[in-house]
Amino acid sequence: MDEREISWFCAYTPVELLAATGFRPVRRFGDPHGLEAADTFLHPALCPYVRACLAEALNGDAPRHAVFVNCCDGMRRLHDAWRDLFPESFSFLLDLPRHTEGRGREILKLEFRRLLRALEEYAGLCVEAEDLRRACRESSELRLSYIRAAEGKTGAARVELAQEAQGYRIPLEGEGHRGEEGGVPVLLTGNLLNPRGLVAFLERAGARVVWADLCNGDRPFTAEAPVEGEDVPRMLESLAALYLERHPCARMGDGDRRYRLLSERFKSCGARGVIYASLKFCDSYLYDFPRLEMRLRREGIPVLRLESDYADGHAGQLLTRVEAFLEMIAGD
């Protein structure tokens, strides 16, 4: 195992700090088909993504150094189990405020500073402003590469591209499959979905996912502001603002902003309906749906709710509902 690789799981992880300290940040997506391997350590009623990531690590298929974000109960529990199982590895739990304005930025800046210190201490080096600037620039270039390469891509191809970019592989324009031709354009929103599971199924059912508002989809690439600052503290402040600027996860406190951005995106991306799909046992999305549904319906935006167990072996059972929904929105 490469000692310079470091696992990360939540889209609010500041990968720039990991890169600036010489680590190679690798977003883990886990093994969707081997969740049971984690059952001894994580209750089966916990997020399947979290269980899949632990299962993968137990099989020895993931870097043991890891940065976790204190974003939800599931992620906290992954951190607890990981630390207990791999005590010799570097691990850090980064706090994430729910506030995204002034105080939230202040808290996140302090957290970024704390993480940076822990990484420096572990790596035995001191990050200079130029190191961090370079890492931020690379991250920004990666984001732009993703946006260019994602142009015209839909569905599973689009989500897989986003996953590649999150794995720090620069996507090449025009590379690979572009997604199914035709189909009814939809906006897909949720937490994290298996591109080869539910997302691919939706395409087969006749949906063309033109925007993937997912944490392993388009969402991490939505903040545009460059990281600025002459020294490390100022850059950390700017970086914290950048992360809180992104289209928020349902976990964040600014629900109003999230709905507004989603509604604007719906209008600009040419979708005819919204498919709201989330992993089972994800409280952030379980509690969010009724409120979001209420708002979308108020605006006359059709919405379909689906659930995923990450492996998505059951997806075929959803076919009738999905087809009926697509038929309805196609005929509008």
Partner: peptide, 27 residues
């Protein structure tokens, strides 16, 4: 102690039309 309260209060804030103040306790 859990995510549920913060999330269900967000819904209730809309239901009742009253403010919801979320306090972030640090680690």
């Amino acid at each position: 102690p859990c995510d549920s309260a913060v999330l269900s209060f967000a819904f209730l804030s809309e239901l009742y039309g009253v403010p919801h103040l979320e306090v972030d306790v640090p680690l």
